[in-house]
Structure formats: C-alpha cells, structure tokens
C-alpha cells in the first residue's frame, strides 16, 4: 500500500508545471524515503531529478517499493481539478495498475477522486556521479528567470562566465548582443535576495536558452536557485523546495564545432 498526503496540492501542481515541458511521461519511484523521479528529455540534452522526501508529506506510507509510470499530460489534467487550497492524497495498492488522486477542500465539504491508469515504462535508471563543481552561484530564482527571458530575445544560446569578479550572462544574435553582469551581494540581509558566488576556478560554458527557460518553470517552487558549473560537465540548476525536497535539472553544454 502506498499513500502520500500533502496539505497543499499547489506543491504538486507546481512540480508538474516544472517538468511537463521536458518530459511527456515519467516514472515515480516511491519507497520509505519518499518519491523520486529521474528522467532525461527525449533528445538526451537535459535530465530532471526530483526528490520529495517522506518527512515533507502530511502523511506518508509506503509498505513496499512502488514504481508508477505516469503520463504527465494526464496527470496535469487531473491536478487541474484540484483547488490550490485542497489537500491531495496519492494512493496505490501494491502492484496496482492505477493510481488514485483524492482532493479534499479545506472544510471537507468537497471530496473528489480521480483514478489514473499507470503506464509500463521501461526506462533505464541512471546514476548521477558525485561531482566537485568549480563554481556555484546562488541567486533569487525570479532574477534568474528574468535574465533567461530577457536574453532569449537576442539569441539561442547563453554564455555563462563565472570569474572572481562575478558572473556574466551573455548572448548575441541577429539584432545585436546583450550582457548581464551580477556581482556577489555585498551584505546579506535577506538570504533569499542574495547573490552568492563560490569559485575555485573560472568557468565559461554555453547553454541553450530554450532549456534554461524550461527550467525556470520551477521558479515558484523556491525563492532561490543554485547553478553549479565545471568545465565539460553538465550544468546543474537546483531549486530547493522548502521542507520537502528539491528539483534538479542537468543540462549538457553546447560545444564548439
């Protein structure tokens, strides 16, 4: 028996919003520790890694490991039926071929349940190697989303260059070029609003705007985003979801021809 209850359905709605541009279907792996999802997009350019810890749920029970292959389009349709203030409970029997979503309004006057067929997805499980990163940049997630959106108007790629002076986001295209430089916040009063740069070695890498914009769909999950970069390895864009887990996106850099 698997049962996971969240007081706020909005977290699950936002998680789905944050992955549905990259993935059409995905496997939710549930065990004692919580729910994990890990999948590459069709073109093998980006990987999504989601963790929702058991202790972040209002109620969590998982007697046996459960693997649920879900069509994310169908899941989105179902979650649209939940009010933002509704609680959501996901339920599945052991070895079941369906999952049930139960939505309850705050006053319990409206209770709805939606049963969805599971898919048998034969997806490979991937191991993410432990990596020491040369640069990590933390900044307000809204600021990162704004930069990606602004720079996307000019070109298809963004060059991220991190040096001890700060971090620079650049792009160029038919109409011209654009650069945004961010320096580390001088005095940190509010951690959520700070830009914090840790650099062991300078790194410059080029990434596709389109993917960075997909990642920023996670903005509402977290006030801050962390970018981790090293030469010749995928960029990690991490949003920590308060009290429950994280969503991490890995993105292969563009390479010089």
């Amino acid at each position: 028996m698997f049962e996971a209850r969240l007081l706020k359905s909005s977290i699950l709605k936002k998680v789905l919003e944050a992955i549905k541009d990259l993935l059409t279907q995905a496997t939710f792996d549930c065990d004692d520790n919580g729910i994990q999802l890990q999948a590459m997009d069709n073109s093998h350019v980006a990987l999504v890694s989601l963790l929702l810890r058991a202790d972040g749920f209002d109620k969590y029970r998982c007697d046996r490991n459960v693997t649920m292959g879900m069509n994310l389009g169908s899941m989105t349709k179902i979650l649209k039926c939940a009010g933002d203030k509704d609680t959501v409970t996901m339920k599945a029997q052991d070895n079941a071929d369906t999952v049930t979503f139960v939505f309850e309004s705050p006053n319990q006057e409206k209770v709805s349940d939606y049963e969805m067929k599971l898919m048998n997805l034969d997806l490979e499980h991937l191991g993410i190697p432990e990596t020491e990163y040369s640069c990590t940049i933390r900044m307000p997630s809204a600021e990162f989303a704004r930069m990606c959106r602004d720079l996307s108007q000019f070109g298809e790629s963004i060059v991220i260059s991190c040096t001890k002076e700060g971090v620079k986001f650049s792009t160029s295209g038919d109409i011209g070029s654009a650069n945004i430089k961010l320096a580390q916040t001088a005095s940190i009063d509010k951690e959520d609003e700070a830009v914090i740069i840790e650099m062991d070695e300078p790194v410059t890498l080029t990434f596709a705007c389109q993917y960075l914009n997909y990642f920023t769909k996670a903005t509402s999950l977290s006030p801050q985003v962390q970018l981790s970069m090293s030469a010749d390895v995928p960029l990690v864009v991490e949003y920590r979801i308060p009290d429950i887990g994280h969503i991490r996106y890995y993105l292969a850099p563009k390479i010089e021809e």
Binding site: H44, H125, A208, P234, E256
Partner: peptide
Amino acid sequence: GTTQGRLDGFFKVL
C-alpha cells in the same frame, strides 16, 4: 559555431 552536446556518457545506466 556551437552544437548542442548530449548527456549520454555522463550518467551511468544502473
């Protein structure tokens, strides 16, 4: 010019 890299090779299939 640049070309889009792939993730294959970075992650190990378990």
